[in-house]
């Protein structure tokens, strides 16, 4: 009984850490955007990196994706989907950006 409530507390703390971390990152993103203005060089890069950090925090603390051996096959699924996703996004942006450039349109 005691072990159970101990584990419960530990898992709840895990969610709260994830929530606190995400909240901190969200506040940082909006604080930077309001304080410096989104068009200042470097600001968007910082926002992008903070967003990426928040993705990782939520994957680990909310979705419990980690490198434990027992969940490695599932990690493979997530990683492979991410690879497909990156090919789709980068490929689309590359091809259409190139097309726009050759058509002398002012894009990106």
């Amino acid at each position: 009984m005691d072990r159970r409530s101990e584990m419960h507390r530990r898992e709840r703390r895990r969610y709260l850490i994830g929530f606190g971390g995400s909240l901190g990152l969200t506040l940082a993103v909006f604080a930077i955007a309001y304080r410096f203005g989104i068009e200042t060089p470097g600001v968007y890069l910082a926002i992008g990196l903070l967003g990426l950090a928040q993705l990782v925090v939520q994957l680990v603390y909310f979705l419990h994706i980690d490198r434990r051996r027992s969940s490695r096959e599932d990690l493979d699924l997530v990683l492979f989907s991410t690879l497909v996703l990156l090919i789709i996004i980068c490929g689309t942006v590359w091809i259409l950006g190139n097309l726009a450039h050759r058509m002398h349109m002012h894009v990106m």
């Binding site: 699924l77 989907s81 497909v84 996703l85 789709i88 689309t92 942006v93 259409l96 894009v107």
Partner: peptide, 28 residues
């Protein structure tokens, strides 16, 4: 649940496609 993860990941690819279209359309 494993099957549901496969669904989530294909949904992610769908969203990814919409993100890609949005990025190419920002100036349009």
């Amino acid at each position: 649940t494993f099957g549901f993860w496969v669904f989530l990941m294909s949904d992610l690819v769908y969203f990814g496609l919409m993100f890609a279209i949005y990025i190419t359309m920002i100036d349009a």
